[in-house]
Design a protein around this nucleic acid. Sequence first.
DNA 1: GTGAAAGCGCTAACAC
DNA 2: GTGTTAGCGCTTTCAC
Lengths: 362, 362
Amino acid sequence: MAASKGSGQVTRADVAREAGVSTAVVSYVVNNGPRPVAGETAERVRAAMTALHYQPNLNARALKRGRSQTLGLVVVDSLNPFFTELSLALEQAAAERGHRMLVAESHGDPDIEDQLVRELTGRQVDGLLLVSSFRRHDHGAPFSSDSTPTVFLDSPGPLPGRHTIGPDAAAGARTAVQHLIGVHGRASVGLVIGPGRVATPDPRETGWRRALAEVGIPAGRLVVDDWSNAGGYRAVRRLINDDDQPDGLFISSDVQAVGALRALHEAGVDIARECPIVSFDGTRAGSYTWPALTSARQPVTEMARTALELIERPQLAVGHHSFAVELLVRDSCGCPVHPPVEASAVAQPSTSTPDERPENVI
Amino acid sequence: MAASKGSGQVTRADVAREAGVSTAVVSYVVNNGPRPVAGETAERVRAAMTALHYQPNLNARALKRGRSQTLGLVVVDSLNPFFTELSLALEQAAAERGHRMLVAESHGDPDIEDQLVRELTGRQVDGLLLVSSFRRHDHGAPFSSDSTPTVFLDSPGPLPGRHTIGPDAAAGARTAVQHLIGVHGRASVGLVIGPGRVATPDPRETGWRRALAEVGIPAGRLVVDDWSNAGGYRAVRRLINDDDQPDGLFISSDVQAVGALRALHEAGVDIARECPIVSFDGTRAGSYTWPALTSARQPVTEMARTALELIERPQLAVGHHSFAVELLVRDSCGCPVHPPVEASAVAQPSTSTPDERPENVI
DNA sequence: GTGAAAGCGCTAACAC
DNA sequence: GTGTTAGCGCTTTCAC
């Protein structure tokens, strides 16, 4: 077995020496091209690779090729299940197309976000996925990633000169509130929402107002707190301490809704009867709360696929891609209890529970 | 302004030309060393960098230096809040030490895991963090990352020749079950657990048995299902259909406990009274369920810090680092309801809720 | 204090 | 079908 260099790294030269060929041939074998290699030679090379535990240096390859097969993903908050599910979908869509994902978290800090974008582009990522960016897009300052295909996800609307993807949140919110009013006869529907980012007002607020206006109900209480469990919890506590409590709530994110549920329970509120809630996102996590969240579902898989398409075809015209959301009717709105569908999806040998109805999708 | 190369990439050569210096000087400025640069020259270089929007190619740097300032993290399941919180802690610990994190997900598939490890080492990561690895450590096959410092997290126990980190799960489980028996007078405590990975039996099972044996209660029902919401949900459904239902439950993970709660609620069980549960992990998410999860908390921050220390000092003796867990007493065990502590941590201008008691920590 | 140049590991012409 | 070699962008030794 040929001695490797001092560095400890086995390089293509070691393999070439071991197999008695040139480094080019090793390359041809590794990459299965661009030139043909005789079957027997290829065999020898492969044997040498295994013997030496050769592992190509992908950074060197990226340097040479100018592409890294890696995408950068910047997320605001990985603890939010919606972002987790979206990240997962993005990672899978990337994997399908042979890309790896470099993930970083901005914690909602625009400076960190900027810094991360710089680092990521410096790492030669082939594309940049920004989820729920706090970046100020209006100041026209050049963006260090302008040569890297970039897509903004969870965007409330179009951004000049950018590829953006987002839910049709206004329509989703409207549908959600309509359900509360039309199906459950609510007379006043409050709104819990997070601090605005790019758009003001948030389309979720717009949709809420619209649904109310359409049936002549005045817009009710609006509470703003963090996009987090704690935020939703605090928002509802404040609502509860008030005199004019709404008799229904539209909560702008599942993560807040979980906190809201908690606060409602603590206060002894009978949610289905006294304060039905509908939220936004439609994460799987919402199937397991009590009551399960009726929620406007964002089509994460489709959004992720579109994001990757935009990355791969940067010449595509920039613009906003709006995705329709669908209302996942579960229990928190007061509709009859729906067992989680996912749980029965995987067949379990021991005991099956065939008595489960599928979730209602509007 | 000097014209850049056709590639679109601004390189150090462009900056050097623009500033009228050599590429070496640019390097000295960028890296603040290793040779001194005259103040005025440095200024010129910096000006050129800004003018050209220069962004160093980090891959080239890694290639040259042999280090990338990047760590690889392989997680089984990013939807499990415990892993999410652990990943976040690892990412922050890495950031504190100037490392970025390349995150990948194995979906519990050992082949994918292997593949990811290869890719990551090929990307010159300076260290590898494997969370809840499915890798078979007993077959002695050489591990492609053997030259890369590697730490196994969420490990049930020591692994020959490896740095491992894990909770003292047996002790944690024992404490959890003792609480159910001692404080809440349970006469039979069931166990819900996930499929085993490396160790059999899982230390959680061992701790459960031990606590029971100590007070002369025979080990009760044990149900195995996925480490997921759905798994916990299904496990409890099976339990409920049985004749000999336990009157308390130790659930081996928060993620399963959430599903269990749902199943219990659906079945109309009064959890605090009829079937108190204690779980394992102590994630923040467990503060917002109804009832909030009493759970044995793993010290993720400390574990993450230790992991990074091990990565940075690879010469440290290999061995297992066991971390004590503490029982976070919340509501699901039947103790009086505890509002989430985190929610009051952030001061809210509008309405404060000073009436919250802190969580009990044993 | 500054510059020339070698070389990190790899790819892909181009020569044979 | 195989080998030689230039060069991706960077760091750093060594000369000046």
